[in-house]
């Protein structure tokens, strides 16, 4: 499978934080969910991909091109929604359409107005009258309307209500109906990712701790719940992390079938991405 995005050994040092040897790849036609705590390095990684920060080491290739050498070219093909960047409040969607026409060669006015209608955004209203959710939708509409091949979205569903989130997620799925397009999407709303993301990449304290298919994570990983006595009989190589709670032990295992075959322990639950994050970050080895 061809990759649309390849990151190799990306390292960036800040006084209090280091992004260490980040490597992952996103194949064509897929959605990757990018998860991690606040401050884990998601936004820094995204900004490195977008060439917003510099002086980092490592290699980032987009559509097989080095993104530093082809920045201008790549800008056309990447649609972006950032968590902390908003359009100036006095602009209207009409103004945005006019300025984007000058920025993107492939800007599609018709598509933009279709999205405005779909999202019930009035073209002649100033952005300052928009709610947080409406602003997000406007950014998503803008990111999609220049026919990008790669969408990079930092928390695109935050601030949206469940109905709007479902709408937006459906639009993302339509976007990858085109086999040449992919999405890298960071989100704290992990339920959205469990359904539609093909891959999950998990970053913690500036390091990638796993990058796998969502199916592998949700179908093969499990949470074992057992007593202290049972826990002591489990070989350390058979689990990834454990957490001692007041009434029970919670143990993260990477292959629940194999675990079930080896140990006689009754409760092995399916995991959610939330459980996975908590145990990976708070659990002990």
């Amino acid at each position: 499978m061809e990759n649309i995005l390849e990151i190799k050994n990306l390292t960036k040092k800040y006084p209090n934080f280091t992004l260490q040897n980040i490597s992952f790849t996103l194949p064509k036609g897929m959605i990757m969910g990018f998860i991690g705590e606040n401050g884990a390095g998601k936004t820094t990684t995204i900004k490195a991909i977008l060439n917003i920060i510099n002086s980092y080491s490592g290699e980032i290739k987009i559509f097989n091109l080095s993104h530093r050498e082809h920045a201008k070219l790549l800008q056309e093909d990447i649609g972006v929604v950032l968590d902390d960047a908003f359009f100036p409040e006095i602009l209207t969607p009409n103004d945005i359409n006019n300025s984007m026409k000058g920025i993107f060669k492939n800007w599609d006015t018709k598509m933009f107005y279709n999205y405005l209608q779909e999202f019930s955004l009035l073209p002649n209203k100033q952005i300052k009258t928009f709610s947080k959710g409406m602003r997000k939708k406007l950014e998503i509409a803008t990111a999609l309307s220049h026919h990008p091949k790669l969408l990079i979205l930092d928390e695109p569903t935050s601030g949206l209500d469940p109905v709007a989130r479902a709408e937006v997620i459906e639009i993302f799925q339509s976007f990858i109906e085109n086999v040449d397009c992919s999405i890298l999407l960071s989100s704290h709303i992990t339920a959205d990712l469990e359904h539609v993301a093909d891959y999950i990449t998990f970053i913690n304290e500036g390091k990638i701790i796993l990058s796998k298919t969502t199916n592998e994570l949700l179908n093969e990983y499990g949470i074992v719940k057992c007593t202290e006595k049972e826990f002591q009989n489990i070989a350390p190589e058979d689990y990834i992390k454990y957490k001692k709670n007041k009434y029970e032990y919670e143990i993260l295992v990477s292959d629940k079938k194999a675990f079930k075959a080896k140990y006689n322990i009754k409760v092995i639950d399916k995991i959610t991405l939330d459980d996975l994050m908590v145990l990976m970050i708070k659990g002990e080895e």
């Binding site: 459906e170 799925q173 990858i176 109906e177 359904h195 539609v196 969502t214």
Partner: peptide, 17 residues
């Protein structure tokens, strides 16, 4: 694969599998 994934609101890899 892709339209089924979209309509079932699941990932592409799921329908592909």
């Amino acid at each position: 694969i892709r339209s089924l994934a979209k309509d079932l609101r699941c990932s592409v890899i799921t329908t592909k599998n």
